[in-house]
Design a binder for these strands. Structure first.
Lengths: 190, 190
DNA sequence: CGTCTATTTGAATGTACTCAAAAGCGGTGG
DNA sequence: CCACCGCTTTTGAGTACATTCAAATAGACG
């Protein structure tokens, strides 16, 4: 049950038995059906989610009512609107499921508690934020310099096998192109 | 001399006289000529820079030799390749001046020291990273949904007056368009 | 002042979009 | 289990946004 998330923690910090037991006691779990919204844009992001199974997306709906996916979160990824969560202010982004999904989550107050009880989690989430920062930075760079087709190939590398699990229109939204154009890109290589 | 950077710290943390004196003693200062590279891509990013006066850019040179600006850092901004700095590993990005620039900077070891001596700086730089994370996230979202012209108008808002200080080709590189096309956009509104 | 680089302008091209219609696929109810 | 409905994907034609190439003009710096 907890093995995936404990392995995730272990990527950046080492926990002893007591610390492991403590974090397990704070973690909450939820099974969520496909196409459910966990966080609505404008609401306060009260939880930080870890995907144990399934897939989330983080997206924004623009003034024309069009949704733009900024990130996919399959197994072993964390999802949060960092600005909303850290300031407990209204969210710019929404978070929703693309498949039936199992998440672990920590509320804001639980995480604050965890920081006090096991300070090394400060380090863990700092590294997580830095990695995300870096990932987005590079994504901007590659968006500046690459064509839609190149970005599509990069998506395939970054999210192996995910393409088979989610709708094309979700991928198109992530790439910043229309579903029609993505279909053409995919068509011409076979 | 230190007033701009102290005001910057004060945006997120409060320092007493002793703490202020301590951080002043750790901060190093450098005046750098226009068009100088402070960090070369591939080198290890050993310092985190604060722009006291002038303007930096953070950029990457792609495989075709083309430079892509990911960020401008005028007065009151911080500049660093966060991945390189935090891991003391080779940098993906380069950092250079667009004007004669005055920077304060902290080396990696100085910052580690500062974290030990004045732990609230952990908080300060965590917030800085979160803000950057958020900024880049939103930039990706807006790049997905907006035309070059809309992004240009957004650039003007985000960096007031900066347009007059730096070359058009730098702005075009930031927007992800050619200098030729930026010239056309600018031409048609007058 | 002269040289080098940046910017402007114009023409032709390519990349990606819109609109429209057809085909495919998934879920639901009979 | 099959038929139907709604949504997603494909395909095609025409269009708009942005690029490349080229040449002329303007600016910056020694």
């Amino acid at each position: 049950m907890f093995d995936v998330i404990l392995a995730n923690f272990a990527m950046h910090i080492s926990l002893n038995a007591a610390e492991t037991a403590h974090v397990k006691s704070l973690l909450q779990h939820k099974a969520v059906k496909k196409n459910t919204v966990l966080l609505h844009s404008g609401d306060i992001c009260r939880n930080i989610y870890f995907v144990n199974k399934g897939c989330l997306r983080i997206f924004n709906t623009d003034s024309n009512g069009e949704e733009h996916n900024i990130s996919f979160c399959p197994e072993n990824w964390w999802a949060v609107d960092i600005s909303s969560f850290s300031g407990q202010s209204p969210a710019f982004y929404a978070i929703g499921t693309l498949e039936d999904t199992d998440v672990f989550y920590l509320s804001y107050s639980m995480l604050e508690q965890l920081y006090v009880d096991v300070p090394k989690f400060e380090r863990f989430f700092r590294i997580l934020t830095q990695n995300g920062f870096n990932l987005y930075q590079r994504r901007i760079t590659s968006n500046l310099s690459k064509t839609a087709e190149e970005r599509y190939l990069q998506f395939q590398k970054q999210y192996p096998k995910l393409e088979q699990r989610i709708a094309q229109k979700q991928i198109a939204s992530y790439l910043g192109i229309t579903p029609v154009f993505l279909s053409m890109i995919r068509g011409k290589k076979s």
